[in-house]
């Protein structure tokens, strides 16, 4: 299976063992291992054209080719002081945002030949997470002081909201329909705001609840906005119905699963893939709540994954 094929499933996992592993998602076979020297990997993202995989580590971001077997990076982004904690692309992959523990959110031009840095936003507090609104002009940023920042890229304006003092925002995700933004905190709380206004930049509190006993680590909407998944240090993943915020399923495997750092839905929301500290990624069938596949091969905790799963006609 060629990973660069537009019509193939791509699953990549990475973490503390300095490697990115690419998996055949339905068989659990690892078909490629890319070494990421010098640092652990904090975040992974596949470019919208599915040709490159981008990994963020300590002080650098590297892009690797998915279409060939060249395991050397094609591009390295340097000049950052600390860990890069999250990254993402706009819809056509012309620019990339990164946020890091140095307290800066950066926009990189990745298409043009010069690839010059484009924009910067300073917060002065280590940043944990960021999510781009689907209209590609607002970036939501969560930091360790518990503040959520909205950065309007077009107007270059920003706004802050503190849902709860003295906590840390661990993950943010904007619903693909652009109407809601969800965030989770290290106290296990889930916050959802409704986005209002012409530019979807006004936030109205919509929902708040403690949903995990321990750190919540990730929140993610499914692509059809039907579900919201939250993962936690209590080694569980919870799937919520977005319509009434009722708990649909708690996915908790055998006793071996540990902190669940990252999750990703299949494009039809039938399955969810999780990355855990027990060096294992798992494929869950949401309806039955069972593990359908395990991805074993990492030597150390997996903290991030990237997944692309095209929709097909029946």
């Amino acid at each position: 299976m060629c990973s660069g094929d537009q019509n193939s499933v791509i699953l990549a996992t990475a973490g503390y063992d300095h490697t990115i592993k690419l998996w055949q998602a339905h068989t659990g076979n690892c078909y490629r291992t890319i070494q990421y020297t010098d640092s652990q990997i904090n975040a992974l993202e596949i470019t919208p054209d599915k040709k490159l995989i981008t990994a963020a580590g300590y002080q650098h971001i590297r892009m690797f080719d998915l279409t060939t077997s060249n395991n050397n990076p094609l591009v390295t982004y340097d000049g950052i002081q600390k860990n890069i904690t999250a990254l993402g692309f706009n819809d056509d992959g012309s620019w990339m945002y990164t946020v890091g523990e140095d307290g800066f959110a950066r926009i990189w031009d990745v298409r043009s030949k010069l690839q010059k840095p484009q924009k910067m936003f300073e917060i002065n507090v280590p940043i944990n997470c960021a999510s781009l609104h689907p209209n590609t002009s607002i970036l939501f940023i969560g930091d360790q002081s518990g503040t959520m920042h909205t950065w309007d890229l077009r107007m270059n304006e920003n706004d802050q909201i503190v849902p709860e003092p003295e906590c840390s925002i661990q993950s943010i995700h904007v619903c693909p329909n652009g109407k809601y933004v969800a965030a989770v905190s290290n106290r296990g709380a889930l916050y959802i705001w409704e986005l209002l206004g012409d530019h979807m930049s006004q936030l109205k509190p919509y929902y708040k609840k403690i949903i995990h006993d321990k750190y919540a680590l990730k929140c993610l909407y499914s692509s059809d906005c039907q579900y919201l998944a939250t993962s936690s240090a209590d080694s569980s993943i919870k799937i919520w119905n977005t319509r009434d915020m009722s708990l649909l399923k708690t996915l908790r495997s055998d006793s071996t699963q540990r902190w669940v750092w990252d999750v990703s839905f299949s494009s039809d929301s039938e399955y969810i893939i999780s990355a855990s500290s027990d060096n294992m990624a798992r494929l869950w069938e949401i309806e039955s709540g069972t593990v359908k596949q395990k991805y074993a091969g990492h030597q150390k905790p997996i903290v991030c994954l990237a997944f692309r799963d095209p929709l097909m006609n029946r």
Partner: peptide, 16 residues
């Protein structure tokens, strides 16, 4: 600012 395209699953299934 780009218009928001919502991915309709409809009758389609994912490759996975």
């Amino acid at each position: 600012r780009k218009p928001i395209k919502i991915q309709e699953t409809g009758n389609r299934i994912s490759l996975l």
